[in-house]
Design a protein around this nucleic acid. Sequence first.
DNA 1: ATGAAAGCGCTAACAG
DNA 2: CTGTTAGCGCTTTCAT
Lengths: 337, 337
Amino acid sequence: MSTIEDVARLAGLSRTTVSRVINNHPYVSAGKKKLVQEAMDILGYVPNSSARSLRNQKTDIIAVFIPRVMNPFFSQFIESFENAASGQNYQLIVCQTQYSQEKELTYLNLLKTRQIDGVVMVSFENDWDVIEPFLEYGPIILCNEVVEKAQVPMIFLDQQYGGYIATKHLTSQGHSKIAYCCGGYRSSVSMARERGFRQALTEAGVQFEERYAFRNAFHVEDGKRVFRELKEMTCPPTAIFTGGDEVAAGMISEAKKFGWNVPDDLAVIGFDNQEITELLDPMITTVYQPVEEMAHKALEVMVQRIQSKRNYSLEKHEFPMKLVIRESTISKKLANV
Amino acid sequence: MSTIEDVARLAGLSRTTVSRVINNHPYVSAGKKKLVQEAMDILGYVPNSSARSLRNQKTDIIAVFIPRVMNPFFSQFIESFENAASGQNYQLIVCQTQYSQEKELTYLNLLKTRQIDGVVMVSFENDWDVIEPFLEYGPIILCNEVVEKAQVPMIFLDQQYGGYIATKHLTSQGHSKIAYCCGGYRSSVSMARERGFRQALTEAGVQFEERYAFRNAFHVEDGKRVFRELKEMTCPPTAIFTGGDEVAAGMISEAKKFGWNVPDDLAVIGFDNQEITELLDPMITTVYQPVEEMAHKALEVMVQRIQSKRNYSLEKHEFPMKLVIRESTISKKLANV
DNA sequence: ATGAAAGCGCTAACAG
DNA sequence: CTGTTAGCGCTTTCAT
């Protein structure tokens, strides 16, 4: 393992000069520069990054917080973000909080110990008040989630609009008994979607019915369960808005098992535009979220923050959603469109 | 940002003593220990990890190489590996090679620059000869892939057995015209599966037919395409082995579109036991791969290697696959179970 | 049981 | 344009 000292000695120059050519500084004569490069080649020299980190007070590593990788939304984010980051010579550390406040806190310590230059929180578990103090140690940006009181960059999707266009699509198909299905109350994401849902209902002159609301559906199994609950209802809904394609898929799969026709007996709309939406029969109408654009913007903003060392100012970037109409909401029977 | 010096001063002791309590060394009197801890609390002190890395010649970071995150096999690996790693206080850097030799090489430099302690290659693009020299800088272990000449740990699944049980299942259903579909020739994975496929065929006394072989199917779209090719054949196969559930899903979806009945007209078997196998109608028969076990073993072996500093010895760990029988291969028509 | 001092490998004043 | 020197923050001999 050769060091800068070895290179300097071999080239017959000082460490400073070697350092200058490593970092592309001006004011190095072409001759010495070549000398240094030759010496580096001979020794197979590569600068030690721990030493550089210590000296430069930065590691060129960014941490991304997600609850877990195996969720298409988050894995797509990781994929896009890593692609962008590697293009700028940043490495990406994955932090899975597992929905645990404690794990999230443990990971935040990476900032304190200076193992990373910044944190992108695509999910968060703790109250902002407990996260905020870590800003002293480096930039934190919020991605996909919105916290009103936080004075940091926030990159997010217009969830309300997403909920709105999905529901509007349902009402415009003539539905008025529309169920609402999502995962969790708390998150700003769910809340915004529900606002959009209600807005579309209101516009169509239909009342929101609490008995049609299911707020604990995250996964395939949940979709199946919700369908079973729903089919037992007196006067069941004719359409349902779900917060995720997996949930919609589970619901459709179960509905078919019980002989229901989707979309004729029940129109189902998903969320995320995952691959699975094109595989089920019927193909699932859904809402496309521009995850890649969001991830790229997140990196861009993060890099700026790291360079400018300004951790404390608000900055909002919103991206729109898009409705993707497939078969699970378009009744052939009614034939209205 | 307080340093060890600050703590020492506040506690009225030397840096050495503070360092000793940080690292739980013996020979520190209880009294001084408490003094130090109080000082650390007051200052909110946390050791700087760049400084430690420089001094200790290790970063507690492991890199995982995969082609891309958005593939259930790899994202599951990442998820499991990160869970295990965080339990041992290791961080995980994700390196997406994008199937590019050049990118892979760039990432290998992380080892040279000492930014990471070791590399887990779940995929690899370059010849072993070009990877091997990097062993000088730290441990590299192979996961899921096997390279005969490599003198490093290899954690892998019994792919041949996987191919075998899947195909055996098909022949035992009475099929003799069985197509073979996989992604890529080269990889040890595909080759082993094909050996298993041929073995099962041989046992059943049927000949391998090259015209039934499709070796460029990676994704949903490919499955659809392969079906279209296959249905035009004179004397098409009655069953098909695919190297991935997505491919199987695409095939089934397309087959249904053309009015074919799966499994009666064509039995389809997948690989991976992804969630989607339980959602399609028919549900997909597939092969379960113990990815989580593999990831856990990979971490265990990696940690050992890092600690022992022995980068150059062979070590093999094999895990078995399991057949998961669902509907896509069980013809109700024939009713032979 | 505790401390003084050297040094991990690098970069940036500062001087020339 | 080039070199000398002083650290970045930590751990570890080696004394005491």
